[in-house]
Design a protein around this nucleic acid. Sequence first.
DNA 1: AAGGATCACAACCGCTTTTGC
DNA 2: AGCAAAAGCGGTTGTGATCCT
Length: 302
Amino acid sequence: MGRAPCCDKANVKRGPWSPDEDATLKNYLHTHGTGGNWIALPRKAGLRRCGKSCRLRWLNYLRPDIKHGGFTEQEDQIICTLYTQMGSRWSAIASQLPGRTDNDVKNYWNTKLKKKLMAGKVISPNNNNNNKTLLTTQQNSDFQDNKNCSPPSSSSSLVHLPILSNDINNFSSNLSLDLIHQQLYSPQFMNLEIDGANSRSNKNNNSSNIEGSTSSSSLALLDYKGGSSLLEEEKQHGVGDDNDESNKEFLMDLGFDGVPTYYDIVNGLNCHERVVGEFSQSISSCCYSEWVDFNCAEIKPH
DNA sequence: AAGGATCACAACCGCTTTTGC
DNA sequence: AGCAAAAGCGGTTGTGATCCT
């Protein structure tokens, strides 16, 4: 036996709401509120509608704080960023956009934004110059020590790394790696704290996040000091040197195709050719203590 | 001008989660 | 703790508007 229906389907009106019905619902809610029970509301208000339908009409259309009209570029960008991070959790995404409903955001994504994004006409976390967020060496180290690993806060503001512009695949050839490094360690980015990061991998943790990172086309900084922390895979593939105690940092781009690309941001060496082959094969089967998925980390200034 | 195709968005459906008893 | 009802949520559908041939 299934659950009882929420209303008598035969006796409720369906389809678009008339202005009269809107007014009736609005007036009733203005006077009485929901009374904590949407199911009973239509009967009390004198509407031949399902309670769920009333609730939806109010939440998605009649509420006074609803923002009608087109989405701004800034809203586009927020939606793209959050969609990349959390997928189709429309209510969570809409909660970051004042006046927008989950239904609005979902419809907008499905009908316009997705296409706009595919056509490359919108700034996205994967191809723009404003959304790449990176951690400094200190933050990365804190992160490894499990400091500041709280869930993302809605009140925090993302800090962007301006140098990582355009398509990440182009930056090694088009931009100065020295400049990238300089910006990574500029005062602007040195005193950041991790406000939340939900995709960190740990070599002691068998549940690798690498796969998830791969599918989200994230950017990450692989960071270690000296050879002692090198993983076997890294040694085998020449990413680092056991006898070299200097900082080793690689900027890593995991594209949608799942093929990681490495950039040696310390030595200004594009090591893509050197490591991308076999190393990319091993990446899905191992985890890195030095790994931080910036795509999913939210950082803010102190 | 007509009609088919596509778009945009409101509304519905049904599953999951939360709440109250 | 367990159950039922209500609320929340995301996927899907329906329909009017607009575009294109």
